[in-house]
């Protein structure tokens, strides 16, 4: 059974001339035990998709099955088997760490006598050993996010949904979260996460989907997506050329030396299957500097979703 199956999902806000279609025909099917990343710029429809999947907002069209149950009809029963780490911290500031877990377990109908013995283990998983009686205000941003992760595990979920779990965290905190998520997938928990960090998706996800403007643009394993959508090598070129910038160089030479070239500001991104001729040419252009690297997910992401700012 797929932990989450979405087909033909459409979500429209508003009506008539003011209607905005935020999700436009999205299909998604998670395999049990995998970690799936939903990538997209701000406003791509990631959070709306999650809200529809959890039955927190009604889909305009399409069908959703969460843990095998139809949503929204049986969303409440389905949510009993799902853990959620929301984008914004929503811990109870009036409670200690342990009380946050106990009270949250109450929303699942779990009796305190069953949950209390598991609290040290849950806190240890989140790297919060001995913080049972700590107040929420005394926790750092990273600790709060980890406690939110522990909170999402009180019901031993089959599927864990995380909405931008590491946004705003420092590298240490991100690595700890990643390590814990890997441990959860190793134990058989299915994970669905949204992110706009490519390295996060590349490290964690078995499969990913890149979405923008409410549609999935590419889907597969990180390697498959890179192989299918972009040339394997990238040369980033910047600096001075004949009194002008890299853009002027690109206009004159790029088409002959690489398959595809994108200019963003004062940098030219040259995508190619064979960088040797381009690098040889650059060796004779003393004002230009360059960085040669393999193509990554971020290149695919920028190719598919464009380089314009999303606000």
């Amino acid at each position: 059974m797929s932990p989450l199956e979405i087909s033909g999902l459409v979500k429209r806000f508003g009506e008539g001339a003011e209607a905005r279609e935020v999700v436009r025909g999205l299909d998604l099917s998670l395999a049990p035990g995998e970690c799936f990343a939903l990538l997209g710029p701000n406003g791509a429809g990631k959070t709306t998709t999650l809200r529809c999947a959890l039955g927190l907002t009604a889909a305009t069209a399409g069908s959703i099955r969460l843990c095998g149950l139809p949503v929204p009809e049986r969303a409440r029963d389905a949510r009993a088997r799902v853990g959620v780490v929301p984008q914004l911290d929503s811990l109870d500031p009036d409670f200690t760490c342990a009380e946050n877990l106990l009270v949250f377990a109450g929303y699942f109908g779990l009796p305190e006598r069953d949950v209390r013995p598991r609290i040290p283990e849950l806190l240890a998983f989140a790297g919060l050993e001995g913080k049972e009686n700590a107040r929420i205000q005394s926790l750092s941003g990273g600790m709060k996010r980890r406690l939110t992760l522990a909170r999402a595990l009180v019901n031993r979920p089959e599927l864990l949904i995380l909405d931008e779990p590491t946004t705003g965290l420092d590298p240490q905190a991100r690595h700890l979260i990643w390590e814990r998520l890997r441990r959860l997938t190793a134990e058989g928990t299915t994970i669905l996460l949204t992110t706009h960090f490519m390295d996060e998706a590349e490290r964690l996800a078995n499969r990913l989907a890149i979405m923008d403007a409410g549609r999935i643009l590419a889907q597969g394993s990180p390697r498959e997506v890179i192989a299918a959508h972009i040339e394997p090598q990238v040369v980033e070129i910047f600096g001075e050329w004949q009194g002008e910038g890299a853009a002027a160089w690109a206009a004159a030479h790029a088409h002959a030396l690489c398959q595809r070239c994108e200019v963003s500001g004062e940098t030219a991104f040259c995508y190619t299957t064979d960088a040797a001729p381009l690098l040889a040419h650059l060796a004779h252009q003393p004002g230009l500097r360059s960085l040669h690297r393999p193509a990554n997910l971020e290149d695919v992401f920028l190719k598919l979703t464009g380089r314009d700012l999303r606000d």
Binding site: L56, R79, P86, N155
Partner: peptide
Amino acid sequence: TQKTWEAIMNAPVS
């Protein structure tokens, strides 16, 4: 402000 309701709605509570 605290998003308490939002957190609760992720549990099986309407």
